[in-house]
Simulated scan of single mutants.
Amino acid sequence: MRRTASPLSLALLGAGVFLLVLAPMLAWYVEPRAKRTPVDVDVTTVFTGPGSYFDTAEIKTVKKDLTITRQVRGDVADSESSGRAVWDVSTSVDTEDTLPAADTHDSLQWTLERWVTDRRTNEPVHCCGEKPTFDGEAYLKFPFDVQKRSYRWWDNTLGSTVRLRFAGVRKIQGYEGYRFTGAVEPAQTGTRLVPGRLVGLPKRSQVLAEEWYANHGIELVVDRRTGRIVNAAIGPRKTLRAPGGKRDRVVLLDSRRLEFTPATQRAQVALASSDSDRLELVGETLPMGGGGAGAVLAAVGAVLVVRGREARGTTPVITL
């Protein structure tokens, strides 16, 4: 009797082999290429908290709630032409009297920056009208696959990197992320021409006062898989000192803690969860599931092929 493989056995064997080939391709080829910093972003984050600032109308430091609004927009055209992630970043510091943040003419502080990074490594790239020139491993986001180690975070006010240490895990809006903390010791960051009496030199009409900056504490909670920051808290302090002075004379801005609002936290968690789920699907779920299903289908198909089926031939001739 002649045996031949059935169409079903061949189909099962072919499907199994296909899945066995596809599974490692998803894990080793597709998933690494999916880990790319997006370029078509338009995200607004808001920090709030109690603080104080120098009121130029009253010529003194007053206490008020502060709001920091940061909008990040991707420049898709420049990103596609350069192959980098090109983001334009607008940041304003306001009180309740100067909100909404979209109207920046009376903000306490307003900056417009352009950040350019490698889409795979998140390292800074110096091109495409980057402003300012920055360094480090993290700023608006962390690299993909965040590790339990210290990272160099760029502090734009300081003009240098700050070491943030891994400090365990923390849940934000029910979503778990890696927590990193650090601080900035007082450092001179520039100079400003002010009336001498502001910094304790009443006999001098104008002096080139020293601008000093510190940060009471930095706390970032980061999604492990995507590097997206799901919560941020900072404690900026900006002051003026007399030339060569040893102590602060004027507090320009100070807050022990400015933190993402609950609405910003929820939005960041939603983005991180969605992106993380897609990476997990491509990098883990589909390769593992596809590999397992492929092995089963290939095994069943191979058994059926080996067993085959009896061909329906002609009726044998019986001789006497």
Rank of each mutant, 00 (worst) to 15 (best):
R119E: 01
R114V: 00
P132W: 10
S107R: 05
L108N: 02
C127T: 07
E123K: 13
V116H: 02
E113P: 01
T133W: 09
E113Q: 15
R119P: 15
R119W: 11
R119T: 14
Y139S: 10
R120V: 15
G129P: 09
F134G: 05
W110R: 11
Q109P: 01
T111G: 06
W110A: 13
D135A: 13
F134T: 15
L112R: 11
A138C: 04
T111N: 13
R120D: 02
A138H: 02
E130F: 01
K131T: 08
V116P: 04
C127G: 07
T133A: 08
T117K: 03
F134N: 10
V116A: 05
D135G: 00
E123M: 13
C128M: 10
L140K: 02
A138V: 04
V116T: 02
T111S: 10
R114M: 08
V116Y: 00
E137T: 07
D135K: 15
K131Q: 02
F134I: 11
R119F: 03
E123N: 11
T111D: 04
K141V: 04
D118K: 08
P124K: 11
K141G: 04
N122W: 05
D118F: 07
S107M: 05
Q109K: 14
K141R: 12
R119D: 03
E123T: 09
C127Q: 00
C127W: 01
V116N: 03
C127E: 08
T117W: 07
T121R: 11
T121H: 10
K141M: 07
S107Q: 07
S107D: 14
W110Y: 15
D135T: 14
Q109T: 10
W115T: 00
Y139Q: 15
G136K: 05
T111C: 00
E123W: 01
T117E: 14
E113T: 15
R119N: 05
T133P: 01
F134V: 15
A138T: 14
